[in-house]
């Protein structure tokens, strides 16, 4: 039986290897969410404001892609980045860059789908006013994204939660290389299968604390923003 004390010792003992793993996990997931948001926020807002043939199909597809299996995304990115793949010349397979790319693809549908829903609801409220003010379509998107900013932080957090918690894609495209592409989730999977349960538990604990911490930070920022902006 692993005892809780050794797990805690590991967490608070200042093990540099552990901190490196925590740091990489954070770096990869935060970068992935940022990259995904850059594409998915405007895309979701655009979908909310426009009507064109095939729109419903795209909306349903994006909603469905929220449940993409991480290993499948990992496999697709693996094929894309492998030496003989179309992006093989980049040479980023088994690097943090590949992990960021894979997680971004995984998270993009979540952010796009939730953004579309949020902006569509807000647009129902704003439509007449912005039309009466003769606001251009591009400015509508910007206005709605800005005015929905507090709801959208929750959307980004949902994306971050998914990215930080998943194992499949980073395992496949990162390779779980010690000191280079090992994240908390891949390390937990490895240590569990090796039987080093205290380490696995310690990492699990850190991961949960980290996710709670990020959410608490975002919540605080949202509250402060709401108080100031009304």
């Amino acid at each position: 039986m692993p005892d809780g004390a050794s797990a805690l010792q590991l967490v608070f003992g200042g093990d540099p290897a552990l901190y490196a793993i925590v740091g990489l996990s954070l770096y990869v997931s935060v970068s992935a969410v940022a990259l995904a948001a850059l594409v998915a926020l405007p895309w979701g807002a655009f979908l909310a404001l426009t009507h064109f043939p095939g729109r419903t199909f795209i909306v349903v597809l994006i909603n469905a892609f929220m449940g993409l299996p991480p290993v499948v995304v990992g496999l697709a990115v693996y094929l894309l980045l492998s030496r003989s793949g179309p992006l093989g010349s980049l040479g980023i397979l088994f690097t943090p860059k590949a992990m960021i790319l894979a997680q971004a693809l995984l998270v993009m549908p979540i952010i796009a789908a939730l953004t579309r829903q949020t902006i569509e609801d807000l647009w129902a409220e704003y439509r007449e006013e912005l039309t009466a003010l003769r606001v251009t379509p591009a400015r509508r998107v910007a206005t709605l994204l800005w005015d929905a900013r507090f709801s959208l932080t929750t959307t980004l957090l949902a994306g971050f939660g998914r990215a930080a918690a998943e194992v499949g894609t980073v395992m496949i495209v990162g390779g779980n290389i010690d000191g280079f592409t090992r994240t908390m989730t891949t390390a937990i999977a490895l240590e569990t299968s090796k039987g080093d349960l205290p380490l696995a538990m310690g990492l699990g604990l850190v991961l949960i604390v980290l996710i709670v911490g990020v959410n608490a930070l975002a919540w605080g920022a949202r509250r402060i923003g709401e108080v100031r902006a009304g």
């Binding site: 704003y126 007449e128 006013e129 009466a132 003010l133 900013r149 009304g230």
Partner: peptide
């Protein structure tokens, strides 16, 4: 373009009063 309208329940943009005017 010189038509303007005030609605029964106007939408207040989520920013300061001054920024709402500046927006227009």
């Amino acid at each position: 373009e010189r038509l303007a309208m005030v609605f029964q329940r106007p939408v207040m943009l989520r920013r300061s009063a001054a920024a709402n005017v500046a927006y227009a």
